[in-house]
Protein backbone atom coordinates (compact mmCIF):
# COMPACT_ATOMS: atom_id res chain seq x y z
CA UNK A 1 0.00 0.00 0.00
CA UNK A 2 2.77 2.45 0.98
CA UNK A 3 6.35 2.02 -0.16
CA UNK A 4 9.35 4.16 0.72
CA UNK A 5 12.30 3.58 -1.59
CA UNK A 6 15.77 4.79 -0.60
CA UNK A 7 14.47 8.00 0.92
CA UNK A 8 16.93 10.74 1.86
CA UNK A 9 15.65 14.07 3.11
CA UNK A 10 17.90 17.05 3.86
CA UNK A 11 17.02 20.56 5.02
CA UNK A 12 19.19 23.60 4.34
CA UNK A 13 20.38 25.28 7.53
CA UNK A 14 19.98 29.04 7.84
CA UNK A 15 22.99 31.39 7.68
CA UNK A 16 25.34 28.83 6.08
CA UNK A 17 25.40 26.42 3.22
CA UNK A 18 25.36 23.27 5.30
CA UNK A 19 22.40 20.92 5.27
CA UNK A 20 20.81 18.86 8.00
CA UNK A 21 20.12 15.24 7.14
CA UNK A 22 16.70 14.30 8.51
CA UNK A 23 16.43 10.89 6.84
CA UNK A 24 19.08 8.83 5.11
CA UNK A 25 18.48 5.94 2.74
CA UNK A 26 15.22 4.81 4.38
CA UNK A 27 13.22 2.01 2.76
CA UNK A 28 10.23 -0.03 3.95
CA UNK A 29 6.79 -1.22 2.87
CA UNK A 30 3.46 -0.86 4.62
CA UNK A 31 0.70 -3.38 3.94
CA UNK A 32 -2.96 -2.38 4.12
CA UNK A 33 -4.39 -2.87 7.61
CA UNK A 34 -1.04 -2.74 9.43
CA UNK A 35 -0.45 -0.87 12.70
CA UNK A 36 3.12 0.40 12.66
CA UNK A 37 4.81 2.36 15.40
CA UNK A 38 7.74 4.59 14.47
CA UNK A 39 9.86 4.90 17.52
CA UNK A 40 12.82 7.17 18.13
CA UNK A 41 14.18 10.12 20.06
CA UNK A 42 13.02 13.68 19.33
CA UNK A 43 14.63 14.83 16.08
CA UNK A 44 15.24 11.26 14.85
CA UNK A 45 13.16 11.84 11.73
CA UNK A 46 9.74 10.38 12.67
CA UNK A 47 7.74 13.52 11.81
CA UNK A 48 9.65 14.00 8.54
CA UNK A 49 8.73 10.44 7.61
CA UNK A 50 5.01 11.09 8.20
CA UNK A 51 5.21 14.40 6.30
CA UNK A 52 6.70 12.59 3.29
CA UNK A 53 3.88 10.04 3.35
CA UNK A 54 1.32 12.87 3.65
CA UNK A 55 2.92 14.63 0.65
CA UNK A 56 3.62 17.68 2.84
CA UNK A 57 7.30 17.35 1.94
CA UNK A 58 9.14 15.88 -1.01
CA UNK A 59 12.18 13.63 -0.57
CA UNK A 60 15.59 14.95 -1.60
CA UNK A 61 16.35 11.49 -3.01
CA UNK A 62 14.24 8.38 -3.48
CA UNK A 63 10.50 8.01 -3.92
CA UNK A 64 7.34 7.45 -1.88
CA UNK A 65 4.57 5.36 -3.44
CA UNK A 66 0.94 5.30 -2.26
CA UNK A 67 -1.19 2.59 -3.87
CA UNK A 68 1.46 2.35 -6.58
CA UNK A 69 1.44 6.11 -7.35
CA UNK A 70 4.69 8.05 -7.01
CA UNK A 71 3.84 10.96 -4.70
CA UNK A 72 6.71 13.00 -6.16
CA UNK A 73 4.83 13.12 -9.46
CA UNK A 74 1.40 13.90 -8.07
CA UNK A 75 -0.05 17.14 -9.50
CA UNK A 76 -1.02 20.06 -7.25
CA UNK A 77 -4.69 19.73 -8.19
CA UNK A 78 -4.70 16.06 -7.16
CA UNK A 79 -3.17 16.60 -3.71
CA UNK A 80 -6.58 17.41 -2.15
CA UNK A 81 -8.07 14.14 -3.42
CA UNK A 82 -4.99 12.27 -2.19
CA UNK A 83 -5.29 13.81 1.29
CA UNK A 84 -8.91 12.64 1.50
CA UNK A 85 -7.45 9.12 1.82
CA UNK A 86 -5.50 10.09 4.94
CA UNK A 87 -6.52 11.07 8.45
CA UNK A 88 -4.18 13.16 10.61
CA UNK A 89 -3.77 13.23 14.38
CA UNK A 90 -1.16 15.54 15.92
CA UNK A 91 0.30 16.14 19.36
CA UNK A 92 -0.95 19.76 19.25
CA UNK A 93 -4.37 18.65 17.89
CA UNK A 94 -4.39 21.22 15.06
CA UNK A 95 -8.07 22.07 15.44
CA UNK A 96 -9.66 25.06 13.74
CA UNK A 97 -10.02 27.41 16.69
CA UNK A 98 -13.06 29.36 15.45
CA UNK A 99 -15.10 26.28 14.59
CA UNK A 100 -17.16 24.21 16.99
CA UNK A 101 -16.44 20.54 17.71
CA UNK A 102 -19.14 19.55 15.20
CA UNK A 103 -17.80 21.94 12.55
CA UNK A 104 -14.21 20.81 13.04
CA UNK A 105 -15.21 17.22 12.37
CA UNK A 106 -17.62 18.01 9.55
CA UNK A 107 -15.00 20.22 7.84
CA UNK A 108 -13.09 17.09 6.82
CA UNK A 109 -16.26 15.87 5.10
CA UNK A 110 -17.27 19.24 3.64
CA UNK A 111 -14.05 19.39 1.64
CA UNK A 112 -15.04 16.11 -0.03
CA UNK A 113 -18.23 15.66 -2.02
CA UNK A 114 -20.43 14.40 0.79
CA UNK A 115 -24.21 14.91 0.90
CA UNK A 116 -25.38 17.28 3.65
CA UNK A 117 -27.99 15.03 5.29
CA UNK A 118 -25.67 12.03 5.39
CA UNK A 119 -22.87 14.23 6.74
CA UNK A 120 -24.77 15.42 9.83
CA UNK A 121 -25.61 11.81 10.73
CA UNK A 122 -22.06 10.61 10.27
CA UNK A 123 -20.61 13.43 12.36
CA UNK A 124 -23.07 12.80 15.19
CA UNK A 125 -22.25 9.09 15.15
CA UNK A 126 -18.50 9.60 15.21
CA UNK A 127 -18.77 12.16 18.03
CA UNK A 128 -20.79 9.63 19.99
CA UNK A 129 -18.10 7.03 19.32
CA UNK A 130 -15.38 9.25 20.81
CA UNK A 131 -17.68 10.32 23.67
CA UNK A 132 -18.14 13.96 22.68
CA UNK A 133 -21.84 13.95 21.89
CA UNK A 134 -22.49 16.56 24.61
CA UNK A 135 -19.78 18.96 23.43
CA UNK A 136 -20.80 19.31 19.79
CA UNK A 137 -21.28 23.08 20.08
CA UNK A 138 -18.19 23.77 22.18
CA UNK A 139 -15.16 25.57 20.77
CA UNK A 140 -11.66 24.02 21.09
CA UNK A 141 -10.60 26.49 23.81
CA UNK A 142 -13.46 25.19 25.96
CA UNK A 143 -12.17 21.58 25.88
CA UNK A 144 -9.54 19.68 27.86
CA UNK A 145 -6.45 18.22 26.14
CA UNK A 146 -7.99 14.74 26.03
CA UNK A 147 -11.22 16.08 24.55
CA UNK A 148 -9.33 18.06 21.93
CA UNK A 149 -7.43 14.96 20.91
CA UNK A 150 -10.69 13.00 20.64
CA UNK A 151 -12.04 15.72 18.32
CA UNK A 152 -8.87 15.39 16.23
CA UNK A 153 -9.34 11.62 16.08
CA UNK A 154 -13.00 12.02 15.12
CA UNK A 155 -11.93 14.39 12.35
CA UNK A 156 -9.31 11.92 11.18
CA UNK A 157 -11.86 9.08 11.06
CA UNK A 158 -14.94 10.84 9.68
CA UNK A 159 -14.13 10.42 5.98
CA UNK A 160 -13.11 6.78 6.46
CA UNK A 161 -9.49 7.20 5.36
CA UNK A 162 -7.31 4.32 4.26
CA UNK A 163 -4.48 5.46 6.53
CA UNK A 164 -4.24 7.39 9.78
CA UNK A 165 -1.00 9.27 10.43
CA UNK A 166 -0.68 9.95 14.15
CA UNK A 167 2.29 12.10 15.18
CA UNK A 168 2.84 11.86 18.96
CA UNK A 169 -0.94 11.89 19.53
CA UNK A 170 -0.56 11.22 23.25
CA UNK A 171 2.33 13.61 23.86
CA UNK A 172 0.16 16.14 25.73
CA UNK A 173 -2.15 13.68 27.44
CA UNK A 174 -2.27 12.05 30.88
CA UNK A 175 -2.12 8.20 31.16
CA UNK A 176 -5.92 7.86 31.24
CA UNK A 177 -6.48 9.82 28.05
CA UNK A 178 -3.47 8.12 26.47
CA UNK A 179 -5.10 4.74 27.09
CA UNK A 180 -8.39 6.01 25.55
CA UNK A 181 -6.64 7.29 22.44
CA UNK A 182 -4.74 4.02 21.94
CA UNK A 183 -7.95 2.06 22.46
CA UNK A 184 -9.65 4.06 19.69
CA UNK A 185 -6.68 3.64 17.33
CA UNK A 186 -6.65 -0.11 17.97
CA UNK A 187 -10.38 -0.33 17.33
CA UNK A 188 -10.06 1.60 14.07
CA UNK A 189 -7.20 -0.65 12.99
CA UNK A 190 -9.30 -3.75 13.71
CA UNK A 191 -11.88 -2.31 11.32
CA UNK A 192 -9.24 -2.29 8.57
CA UNK A 193 -7.64 1.18 8.66
CA UNK A 194 -3.86 1.31 8.44
CA UNK A 195 -2.30 3.17 11.37
CA UNK A 196 1.13 4.78 11.31
CA UNK A 197 1.96 6.07 14.77
CA UNK A 198 5.06 8.09 15.69
CA UNK A 199 6.02 8.11 19.36
CA UNK A 200 8.99 8.19 21.71
CA UNK A 201 7.04 6.63 24.58
CA UNK A 202 8.42 3.29 25.79
CA UNK A 203 5.12 2.37 27.48
CA UNK A 204 3.08 2.87 24.33
CA UNK A 205 5.50 0.95 22.11
CA UNK A 206 5.64 -1.99 24.52
CA UNK A 207 1.90 -2.06 25.20
CA UNK A 208 0.93 -2.19 21.53
CA UNK A 209 2.93 -5.31 20.61
CA UNK A 210 2.76 -4.51 16.89
CA UNK A 211 5.32 -3.85 14.17
CA UNK A 212 7.90 -1.33 15.39
CA UNK A 213 10.32 0.59 13.17
CA UNK A 214 13.04 2.20 15.26
CA UNK A 215 14.69 5.29 13.76
CA UNK A 216 17.95 6.70 14.98
CA UNK A 217 19.72 9.72 13.43
CA UNK A 218 17.57 9.52 10.30
CA UNK A 219 18.25 5.86 9.63
CA UNK A 220 16.26 2.70 10.34
CA UNK A 221 17.92 0.85 13.19
CA UNK A 222 15.44 -2.01 13.40
CA UNK A 223 12.16 -3.14 11.85
CA UNK A 224 10.48 -5.88 13.89
CA UNK A 225 7.09 -7.49 13.39
CA UNK A 226 6.38 -7.72 17.10
CA UNK A 227 8.79 -5.12 18.32
CA UNK A 228 9.67 -3.55 21.62
CA UNK A 229 11.27 -0.29 22.67
CA UNK A 230 15.01 -0.74 22.28
CA UNK A 231 16.52 2.74 22.63
Amino acid sequence: MIKLENITKTYPLSFNRETKVALQNVSFDVEAGEFITFCGRSGAGKTTLLKLIACQEQPTEGAVFFDGENLGKIKDKDICAFRHQIGFVFQDYKLLSYKTVFENVSYALEVTDYQNGVMDNEVSQILELVGLEKQTNSFPHELSGGEKQRVAIARALIHRPKVILADEPTGNLDPYHTRDVLKILNKVNELGTTILLATHSKEIVNSLQRRVITIEDGQIRSDEANGRFIL
Binding site: Q56, C80, A81, R83, K94, L96, A108, V111, T112
Partner: peptide, 16 residues
Protein backbone atom coordinates in the same frame (compact mmCIF):
# COMPACT_ATOMS: atom_id res chain seq x y z
CA UNK B 1 -1.53 30.87 8.85
CA UNK B 2 -1.83 27.80 11.08
CA UNK B 3 -5.56 27.48 10.34
CA UNK B 4 -4.92 27.64 6.59
CA UNK B 5 -2.30 24.89 6.95
CA UNK B 6 -4.80 22.68 8.77
CA UNK B 7 -7.38 23.26 6.04
CA UNK B 8 -4.86 22.25 3.39
CA UNK B 9 -3.91 19.18 5.40
CA UNK B 10 -7.46 17.86 5.55
CA UNK B 11 -7.66 18.24 1.78
CA UNK B 12 -9.57 21.51 1.34
CA UNK B 13 -9.35 22.94 -2.17
CA UNK B 14 -8.09 26.48 -2.75
CA UNK B 15 -11.54 27.90 -3.39
CA UNK B 16 -12.87 26.29 -0.24
Amino acid sequence: KAEIEIMRLVGAKRRF
